[in-house]
Design a protein around this nucleic acid. Structure first.
Length: 842
RNA sequence: GCGGACGUGGCGGAAUGGUAGACGCUGCCGACUUAAAAUCGGCUUUCCGAAAGGAAGUGCGGGUUCAAGUCCCGCCGUCCGCACCA
């Protein structure tokens, strides 16, 4: 063996051998227990970044570990290939989105292979492959036939200058990112998936997801937002002219605060608002104003609360003489509840701001106790629950009881009813863009929207499109949309909207498991692999992607395509990769390769020698120029060092700060293991202490990998490596080295294979069984017990394991340090935790 | 604005309510070397002390407990998501 591990040569050698032997191709028919390990597939943006390296390294360690523990492993890779960046590239660089995307895929595939991931490349696909999106169109038709797809009006961000629909991220401070024009909200007829039909089911299903992080389940629960409340009608004292507008229907989750109401507010696009606008020009103007700005919730809710007093009065349901002003308000959403609310400024912060602005009464109607009924409401609303006060017949009732009582009376008197509502809205899937899956619908004047014939799938995107002007190229294509109606044969037009790319990523994991040519997937084969045992990706996907994938899985079950409800049995959300940022003194962002350490230790800009301000540690991003490209790192230090660093130190769920020192440390460790593997062999001899350490490490590393706590596995392996280095040559030490190689094989596979072969073993270490541990070697005969006085550490003692309580107490009390502190006073109390500590309370 | 998390040495972090700082990085000292690199050994929370030893200490302020980084309440700060970014 040579002195230094040649990472470049070893990486290449083993990657080639793995590929030649098709080692990581998954066999659906295998009799071994199956394990499906999946990382969120990447968007082919151009080059892989550190976040990808971290994500795929974690999954790779688990996949390789599962393989060594006797599983048939499915660990596939593909491309989430539709989306806006390809269209932006087309506009900026005059390249076709498809050409741009497939070039990026080719580059990134090579980069991933360079890292030596144990991936089954035979199952690779891109969502922009017509084969894939054709199957997706078939699934769309299934859902359409099952009544899970419908059409309705909904708002989009409209750029009035570019005459195009904008994504939320393209709206910056209420203006279009290219044109700079103030954005408007505009209504379009669009397609939706009826996800709300599964709202309860998606909520209940969270309860069974034991291997999901609680925080993600909680976020989904809040997103679905199931709440019980009261829906009721406020009579309007002056009918607005038409018979059906003599009442306004509101929904509230706090019916107990009904006596604290001081106004009624309706959405700007509420039918009543429309009716009022018809004869009040000021109202019409206000409604126009409300349409300014983007559609995102953050935009709407951080905007200043504004209202327009319609002059109408709503009659309080419990008191015919009590009238509330009716406002049109910019913060009430038509999509949630009934599009109308009553405002209780005492107990809702938004209502409080509104009431303060318009001089409306603020009355306390809930208090921590009846004694505090007259505590004034201060600068902020009091949103705690308690007992009802100043609320007539509700006075003294607990919040929950008061809610029930109001609902009971409303139902008895016939003006309202208890109702369950969800915050979750139906999933809008229409996108007015080219680079996505065409929605397989034909619009016919006589038949309406009709699904295309299945034998015509895939409905392909036309190649000859131009991106010279903004807007949807499908819509302006000269003949693509012209087609005869599949039902009546009359001339008709294709739907020119494409599907949200979240649809693409909502079933790709099924296609990985089974990919027949003639249908989306085979139910039996997919069932053999699904659900995914461990899914790994960024926490930024905690709600939308994961909820949509759960929905689609249920929908596919509903239409009989699949027989599981939950796609991902285990979920892990990993943190971001961050790096320091640097700015020149005049404010330009500088990349890590544009700076260096000056003679006096100050950071300076390489080209000018000018001063550099160290900025905060932030997520790697092009705009801050703090991106480190993984590939030069891999070329310089080897794939294993890069992988090892990604797993070291930082807990995987937290952010990882990239550092040069860190990668060098990892590379040093790779060399240490290599030297150890080539070190002098011993003849015979036991080494009990080393064996103990070894077997504890086997347990620790296995548990750490199963729990995805790779930083702990790394720490345990450092300890074991040091212990072996310090041990005298012996056969026990040689065995420990072979075991160490198997333990690091999932994390540093090239090093492990190279050293395994150099030590004379046959076959791939990737195929070697995971080491077994001997339980007898895990426990020591002696333990250290801590002796505390009043909870403070004063001494320690070595005792036999399993020592009796009274014996431990006696020993502790006889320690000189203890008696010195206690003096002549007998201890008041002694707490003994077996084998751990004695705490003496003086 | 709403929802969710996180906060421990110079740095990344470890710690079933039971020895705070494992392991790694950095730095310093030493060995090897003509020299350097590589490698190996030691030290590295702060304060007081020559040492032995002592005191303080897990964002801030309270609380529960024999015992709190860990549990509870209230703040502060940072990050993620908010439905057309992926």
């Amino acid at each position: 063996m040579s002195d230094r591990f040649d990472a470049g040569a070893a990486d290449q050698r083993w990657q080639q051998r793995w590929e030649e032997s098709q080692l990581f191709a998954a066999d659906s028919a295998s009799a071994r227990p199956k394990a499906y390990v999946l990382e969120m597939f990447p968007y082919p943006s151009g080059r892989i970044h550190m976040g990808h390296v971290r994500n795929y390294t974690m999954g790779d360690v688990l996949a390789r570990y599962k393989r060594m523990t006797g599983h048939e492993v499915l660990h596939p890779m593909g491309w989430d290939a539709f989306g806006m960046p390809a269209e932006n590239a087309a506009m900026e660089r005059k390249v076709h989105p498809g050409a741009w995307t497939y070039e990026n895929i080719a580059t990134m595939r090579g980069q991933l292979k360079r890292l030596g991931f144990a991936l089954d490349w035979t199952r690779e696909f891109a969502t922009c492959d017509p084969e894939y999106y054709g199957h997706q169109q078939a699934l769309f038709l299934d859902l359409l036939e099952a009544g899970l797809v419908f059409r309705k009006e909904s708002e989009v961000n409209w750029d009035p200058v570019d005459m195009t629909v904008l994504a939320n991220e393209q709206v910056i401070d209420g203006k279009g990112w290219r044109s700079g024009a103030p954005v408007e909200r505009r209504k379009l007829n669009q397609w939706f998936f009826r996800i709300t039909r599964f709202a309860d089911d998606l909520l209940d299903g969270l309860g069974d997801l034991e291997k999901w992080p609680d925080k993600v389940k909680l976020m989904q629960e809040n997103w679905i937002g199931k709440s019980q409340g009261l829906q009721f009608r406020f009579a309007l004292d002056r009918p607005a002219g038409t018979a059906d507008l003599d009442a306004v229907e509101v929904f509230t989750t706090r019916p107990d605060t009904i006596f604290g109401a001081s106004f009624v507010a309706i959405a700007a696009d509420h039918p009543l608002a429309m009716a009022i606008a018809a004869d009040q020009p000021d109202a019409a103007r206000f409604i126009e104003q409300c349409k300014a700005g983007g559609t995102s919730a953050a935009d709407i809710e951080t905007a200043e609360k504004q209202g327009y007093d319609t002059g109408l009065k709503a009659v309080h349901p419990f008191d015919a003489d009590w009238q509330l002003p009716v406002y049109i308000a910019n913060f009430v959403l038509m999509d949630y509840g009934t599009g109308a609310v009553f405002g209780v400024p005492g107990h809702d912060q938004r209502d409080h701001e509104f009431a303060t602005k318009y001089g409306l009464p603020i009355q306390r109607v809930v208090a921590p106790s009846a004694d505090e009924a007259d505590e004034p409401i201060g600068e902020e609303a009091d949103d705690r629950e308690g007992v009802a006060v100043h609320s007539r017949f509700l006075d003294g009732m607990e919040t929950e009881a008061a809610k029930a009582e109001v609902i009971r009376r409303a139902e008895a008197e016939g003006w309202g009813e208890g109702k369950t509502v969800y915050r979750l809205r139906d999933w809008g899937i229409s996108r007015q863009r080219y680079w996505g899956t065409p929605i397989p619908i034909v619009h016919c004047e006589s038949c309406g929207p009709v699904g295309v014939k299945r034998e015509d799938l895939p409905i392909r995107l036309p190649e000859d499109v131009s991106f010279d002007v903004p807007g949807n190229p499908l819509d302006r294509h000269p003949d693509w949309k012209k087609i005869d109606c599949p039902r009546c044969g009359q001339p008709a037009t294709r739907e020119t909207d494409t599907l949200d790319t979240f649809v693409d990523s909502s079933w790709y994991f099924v296609r990985f498991a089974s990919q027949p040519g003639d249908r989306p997937f085979d139910k039996e084969e997919a069932s053999a692999w699904l659900p995914v045992d461990q899914y790994i990706g960024g926490v930024e996907h905690a709600i939308l992607h994961l909820l949509y994938a759960r929905f689609i899985t249920r929908a596919l079950q509903h239409v009989g395509r699949l027989d599981i409800a939950e796609p991902f049995a285990g979920l892990f959300t990993q943190g971001m990769v961050t790096h320091e940022t640097y700015q020149s003194l005049d404010g330009r962002w500088l990349g890590p390769d544009e700076i260096e350490l000056g003679e006096d230790g100050q950071v300076i800009e390489k080209t000018s020698g000018g001063g550099v301000r160290k900025g905060r540690v932030e997520k790697m991003s092009k705009s801050k120029k703090n991106v480190v490209d993984p590939i030069p790192i891999v070329d310089r230090y080897g794939a294993d060092a890069a992988r090892w660093f990604m797993l070291s130190d930082s807990p995987p769920e937290r952010d990882l700060e990239w550092s040069l020192g860190g990668i060098e440390g990892a590379a040093r460790f790779v060399q240490r293991v290599w030297r150890l593997a080539g070190s002098e062999k011993g003849e015979g001899g036991e080494d009990k202490a080393l064996e103990r350490k070894l077997h504890r490490t086997i347990v620790a590393v296995g548990e750490a990998i199963e729990g995805l706590q790779f930083n702990k596995a790394v720490a345990a392996l450092y300890e074991l490596t040091s212990a072996i280095e310090k041990a005298e040559p012996s056969s026990a030490r040689d065995a420990a080295i072979d075991t160490l190689l198997r333990l690091i094989a999932p994390m540093a596979p090239h090093l492990a294979e190279e050293a395994w072969a150099a030590r004379g073993h046959q076959g791939f270490i990737a195929d070697a069984p995971w080491p077994e541990h001997d339980p007898a070697l895990l426990v020591d005969d002696e333990v250290t017990m801590v002796v505390q006085v009043n909870g403070k550490l004063r001494d320690k003692m070595q005792v036999a394991r399993g020592i009796a309580r009274d014996k431990a107490e006696e020993m502790a009390l006889s320690l000189p340090k203890v008696s010195q502190i206690l003096g002549d006073n007998p201890p008041r109390k002694v707490i003994v935790v077996p084998d751990r500590l004695v705490n003496i309370v003086a």
